[in-house]
Every structure is written in structure tokens, then in C-alpha cells.
């Protein structure tokens, strides 16, 4: 294992993150704060409690997941797409590193950033609403696993994309709708029965549900199923990344 290479890629990516701190950290925190103001305070004040939790507090786990999913995809896809676009990827491809080291470096840095953003949003949320965190370690587990899984997904997207449009189209047209329809702002149980069934085909439902259980001990689906779905998604992405590097898909001719 080339630990020096992992350290170099990781440090390089983290430095890039701090160089663009406003875009990387301040922007997602600001947008999440706006969600709290609009949905938590303005609209939430007119909504009664959901499953015994005030609406403002209810949306916190969903908002954290919404942010880390979109940020994870955005960060890791850009991290690998930009070197492809500029041609600097040649150095990584010609270096004595395997796909595991490249992945740990890039995805590790992007996931660290996501966990950091998720934590900052959690702290920010405390300024708006009173939050009870029932199982902090489980919340951290979901935060870390979801960050890694979606960073891997973004990594795949960054390698698959052959233009800037493709890089942005998947988060906007696929991930954002799935997240909004995945129970960020409501409980699946509030939907008509048919829509409840349809919602169960949305993988994001399981992630948000799991995170919400770690906060309030209530969930749309069992926490074990949520954990299983998160790990399955992570493993599936890992498998695809391995396939990309072993075949050289879009990287080596």
C-alpha cells in the first residue's frame, strides 16, 4: 500500500476544500439555514408535531442527509472530473498507485468534507430548534456511511461524465428529486397508501429514515433495513469503482 500517495491525494484535496471554503462550507450551511427559516419557522409553525417531534426538529435529520448527499456527489465528482478535464489525471494514472489508494485519497477527502458539513449543519440547527439526539454514535455511523457511499457515487459520476452538463444533470435531475421525495420534509406515513408503497422504491427513504431514527427513535422503515440499504449502496458503488479502474473505463485507452 502506497500510504504516501494516499496522504498526498488526501492533503491535496483537503487543501483545495479550504481554498474554496466559501463555496465548500459556507454555501451549504447558508442554504440549509434558509430551509430552517422557511420550512422550520415560517411554514413549520403552522404544522403540528410529527410522531411527537416538532416540525422544525423533525426536518433536521433529513436536511443533514440532503446536504451531505448533494455535497458528497458534488465534491467527489468535481475532484476527479477536473483533473480529467485539464489532463492532470495523467500523473495519477502513471503513479505507482492502485485503485484502492486513489479511491481512499479522493473519496476519503470528499467524505471528510461531507462529515464536516453535516456536523456544522447539526450545530447550526441547534441555533434554530431544540434537538434531541437519541443515539449519537448511530447518527455518526449513518453520517459517515452515507458520505462515503455518495462520494463513491460522485466519483463514478465524475469518471462517467464527458462534459460539464452531465456532471450537473444527475444531481439535479435524479438525486435532488429522490431526496425531496425521500422524506426530508415529511414522514412517509403521512402519504396515501399507494404513494407509501411507491416511496419504498426510493433508496433515499431508507437513508433519511435511518438518520431520523438515530435522532428521535421513530422511523418509516426499520433501522436495520436502513443500515443494510446504506451498506449495500456503498458496496455497489465500491464494486463499480473497482471495475472502472481495472478495466480503465474512461481513464485508460
Amino acid at each position: 500500500m502506497n500510504f504516501q500517495a494516499i496522504k498526498s491525494i488526501y492533503k491535496y484535496e483537503m487543501a483545495r476544500m479550504f481554498r474554496t471554503a466559501v463555496q465548500s462550507i459556507v454555501a451549504p450551511v447558508l442554504s440549509t439555514s434558509l430551509y430552517f427559516v422557511i420550512f422550520g419557522a415560517a411554514i413549520g409553525s403552522r404544522i403540528t408535531e410529527i410522531d411527537g417531534v416538532s416540525y422544525g426538529a423533525f426536518i433536521v435529520p433529513g436536511l443533514i442527509m440532503l446536504s451531505i448527499m448533494t455535497e458528497s456527489i458534488s465534491n467527489s465528482s468535481f475532484a476527479i472530473y477536473f483533473p480529467r478535464f485539464t489532463g492532470t489525471i495523467f500523473e495519477v494514472l502513471s503513479a505507482p498507485v492502485s485503485w484502492v489508494e486513489v479511491m481512499i485519497g479522493y473519496v476519503g477527502a470528499a467524505a471528510t468534507k461531507s462529515v464536516l458539513i453535516g456536523s456544522i449543519i447539526f450545530i447550526t440547527a441547534n441555533f434554530f430548534v431544540d434537538i434531541d439526539l437519541a443515539y449519537p454514535l448511530v447518527a455518526l455511523l449513518f453520517l459517515v456511511l452515507t458520505s462515503i457511499a455518495f462520494c463513491l457515487f460522485g466519483f463514478i459520476l465524475g469518471i462517467w461524465a464527458d462534459g460539464w452538463e452531465k456532471l450537473t444533470i444527475v444531481p439535479i435531475l435524479v438525486i435532488m428529486p429522490l431526496t425531496f421525495l425521500g422524506g426530508t420534509f415529511y414522514s412517509i406515513s403521512m402519504l396515501p397508501e399507494t404513494w407509501q408503497t411507491i416511496s419504498l422504491f426510493n433508496p433515499v427513504v431508507y437513508l433519511i429514515s435511518g438518520m431520523r431514527w438515530s435522532f428521535y427513535e421513530n422511523a418509516d422503515v426499520s433501522v436495520a433495513l436502513s443500515l443494510g440499504m446504506t451498506i449495500s449502496f456503498l458496496l455497489a458503488c465500491l464494486f463499480v469503482v473497482r471495475w472502472i479502474f481495472t478495466t480503465g473505463y474512461r481513464l485508460r485507452t
Binding site: 500517495a5 498526498s8 492533503k11 485539464t86 503513479a95
Partner: peptide, 17 residues
């Protein structure tokens, strides 16, 4: 493009182990 000469040279050294 946005990196400094020193950092990019140091990065290459680390990348190659």
C-alpha cells in the same frame, strides 16, 4: 492551474511514494 509551484512539485513526490 490554481496550485503553487512548490505544492504541485511536493504533491508529485508524495504521489510516487
Amino acid at each position: 492551474t490554481f496550485e503553487t509551484v512548490w505544492k504541485t512539485a511536493s504533491f508529485s513526490r508524495g504521489l510516487f511514494g
